[in-house]
Design a protein around this nucleic acid. Structure first.
Lengths: 231, 231
DNA sequence: GGATGTGAAGTAGTTCACAGCC
DNA sequence: GGCTGTGAACTACTTCACATCC
C-alpha cells in the first residue's frame, strides 16, 4: 500500500466481486415486496456466510439496522456509489461477431455506468451498419478516446488489437480472446475465458470439492462454503 | 475434507484457475520454438510470482528440470491430465441467442473435454435448424442426459430453466444469466457475469489498486501482484 | 428479542529463502 | 551457475463470538 493511494476504505477484491451479487439479490428481494433483508438470508442466497456478508457491507459504512437487517433499496444505492457506477465511463468494443453482439445487446453489460462510445470491426460487411445507436467503424480509423477497451476478437488478432488500443490511449482492457497479451506497465488487462469456467466446474465435480450446495452462488473467484459430499 | 474424497492431491481453486493460463502460455512459448520455460518467465507472463508458479506446478508432481525449467509440451500435457480433460464429459446449451452461438462457435469453449450433446431453445425460428452438427431442439422435449448445463437465457427465464435442467438430472450449471438461481443441495452453479468484470476493472482503475502492470494476466479471481501507482 | 458491526481467532493462499539437483 | 521444490514466515481473507444497538 503506497501513500499515493488515499482512498479511505480499501475494499478487497473478493469483496468488490461480491457486491454486485448482493445488489442483485437485494433488488430481487425488494421486487418481491420486502423492505429489509438480513445477512443470513443474503448470505444463503449468495452462497457465503452471514459473517462475510456483514464484514463486506461494513466496509461501505454503517447501513444496516440492528434487529432488522439491511434496507434493500439503500443497500442497492450504496453499492452503486461504492462501485463508482454513478460516474459514467466510456468503453469501446472491438469485434462484432456473435460475442460482441451478445455483449452489446446484453441486458446488463452496460448497466453499471459504462457508456458505449465506439464499435470497431474489420469486416466490410458490418462496417457502416448501425448497432445500439452507433455506426460500426473500421478498426483502421482513429480509435475514439475511452477508458476501457473490450476485445471480442479471435486469439490470432488479440495482440495487435491490444497494441492498437494501448497506442490510442486506452489503459484498461477486457479481453475475451483466449490469448495472453503483453501490455506496457500501467495498463490493466482482465481476462474472461469461458472454457476455463467450464473446466473449473468440471474439476470440482470430479473432485467432490467446490461449490456444491443449495442456492449457492459462485462467481468469479468467490469460494462458497464447501459442502463436502461424495459425488 | 471428508474421507469420502480420496484424491491424493487437492489443488486449491486459485491454483486450478491458473493452470489453464500456464498451459496457454506454455503452448504459445512452444510455438515460438522454445523447448523449456522457467517459472520466472511463466510468472511474468501470467502476472504472478515465480514462487507461486512453482508451488502451483509442484502440485502436479515433479515435472520441472532444475537448472532448465519446465518442458513446454510435458507441462501442457500434464495440465490436461490434471484437469481431467482427457476424459470427455457431455454438456448441453440452453438458449441460442448471440451468446449461445458465440459460445458454440468459440475456438476454445469446447476445447477441454466438453462434448456438446444438445442445444435447446424456445424460438420456433431456430428449433430444427442445424448448429455445430446438432439439430436445435425445443426446450419442451426431454433433455438429453449430460453432466453440465450451460444457460444462455434471459434473466427472467433463468430460474425455470435451472429447475428444468436439475429435474432432468443435470447437477452442474454454468449460468450466464444475470440472475441468482436457487438449486437443491448437491447441485453446483457457476456464474459468469460480464458486467461484474467491467465493474471490477473500473473499480480497480479508479482506486489505483488491482492488476496494473506489464504483461499482467488477470483471470477469474487471480490476483496479480499489485503495482502501486497513483493513477 | 433479534440482528448488526467488529475485535480476535482461525484458515487459506502467497511469498521468502534456501537446500538440492541438473 | 541456474532453477526447481518446499518448509517456514507472512499476508489476506474468512469465520467466530459477543458487545452494542434498534
Amino acid at each position: 500500500m503506497s501513500s499515493a493511494i488515499l482512498r479511505s476504505k480499501q475494499l478487497s477484491e473478493p469483496t468488490v466481486a461480491r457486491l454486485p451479487i448482493y445488489q442483485r439479490i437485494a433488488d430481487e428481494w425488494s421486487r418481491r415486496g420486502n423492505l429489509h433483508i438480513d445477512s443470513t438470508t443474503l448470505g444463503s442466497l449468495a452462497g457465503v456466510q452471514p459473517a462475510t456478508v456483514r464484514r463486506d457491507l461494513s466496509g461501505l459504512g454503517a447501513l444496516g439496522t440492528r434487529g432488522a437487517g439491511y434496507e434493500c433499496e439503500t443497500l442497492s444505492t450504496r453499492i452503486n456509489e461504492t462501485l463508482g457506477r454513478n460516474h459514467r465511463y466510456d468503453i469501446v468494443v472491438v469485434g462484432l461477431g456473435n460475442l460482441g453482439r451478445a455483449l452489446i445487446n446484453s441486458e446488463n453489460f452496460l448497466s453499471g455506468g459504462a457508456e458505449l462510445v465506439g464499435i470497431y470491426d474489420i469486416d466490410p460487411e458490418v462496417i457502416g451498419t448501425e448497432v445500439a445507436g452507433l455506426t460500426v467503424q473500421s478498426f483502421d480509423v482513429d480509435i475514439v478516446s475511452a477508458m476501457v477497451g473490450v476485445m471480442c476478437v479471435p486469439a490470432s488478432a488479440a495482440q495487435s488489437v491490444a497494441d492498437r488500443l494501448v497506442a490510442s490511449g486506452i489503459h484498461a482492457l477486457l479481453n475475451f480472446a483466449p490469448h495472453v497479451v503483453a501490455v506496457p506497465i500501467g495498463t490493466a488487462v482482465r481476462y474472461v475465458d469461458f472454457s476455463i469456467e467450464l473446466q473449473i466446474l468440471e474439476y470440482q465435480l470430479t473432485n467432490g470439492t467446490g461449490p456444491l450446495g443449495g442456492g449457492v452462488l459462485h462467481t468469479l473467484g468467490i469460494t462458497p462454503p464447501v459442502v463436502t459430499r461424495s459425488v
